[in-house]
């Protein structure tokens, strides 16, 4: 039984957390949870919640949040940008960069447009692309292990920052 596309994407969202190091000295005390936020229309439904249920990364439990306003993304670690938010993507990315939030989306050309990780479909399999420059600007350190399995790694600054 092959997992569905949504199941794979949900697992990816969680697994990315294992290969990313967030800056420690951002003023706030260490968070006890790693929040995966979804902004815009949620394509996962309950799949994401069931995927991360009970899981931990570096001792931090995983939490999911649905947000509608970018201001709510401040305490997020991973932000899935739904295709519905494509229109005001630039504002979103700038905010995410400021708060060192890892941005992930399955919209087309997400990394070329300044996103950090873009999910793509390749030969029937779900893979991902990485924008290293965006990660650097967000003070995120991506593991070489992650880069190794990315289909494409580009250097594209976040526009407007």
């Amino acid at each position: 039984m092959h997992p569905t596309e949504s199941q794979v994407k949900a697992a990816y969202l969680y697994n990315f957390g294992k290969f990313v190091r967030w800056p420690v000295d951002n003023g706030a005390p260490p968070l006890d949870s790693l929040d995966i936020c979804i902004i815009g229309k949620d394509p996962f439904g309950t799949i994401l919640d069931s995927t991360v249920a009970g899981e931990k990364i570096d001792g931090r439990r995983i939490a999911t949040r649905r947000i509608s306003n970018i201001q709510e993304a401040r305490r997020c670690s991973v932000l899935f940008v739904s295709s519905s938010e494509e229109s005001h993507l630039a504002t979103l990315l700038v905010a995410a960069e400021r708060w060192s939030v890892l941005t992930v989306s399955d919209m087309r050309n997400f990394v070329e447009r300044g996103g950090t990780i873009g999910l793509v479909m390749e030969q029937g399999r779900i893979r991902f692309e990485v924008n290293r420059r965006a990660a650097e600007q967000s003070h995120l350190v991506l593991s070489s292990e992650l880069l190794k399995v990315a289909t494409k790694v580009i250097e594209q600054p976040i526009p407007g920052s």
Binding site: V8, A11, Y12, K18, F128, S143, E145, L146, V149
Partner: peptide, 14 residues
């Protein structure tokens, strides 16, 4: 340990 990401992100080539 070098195959963790490959396994997680389904990348047999890696």
């Amino acid at each position: 340990s070098n195959s963790i990401s490959a396994l997680l992100f389904n990348d047999p080539q890696s």
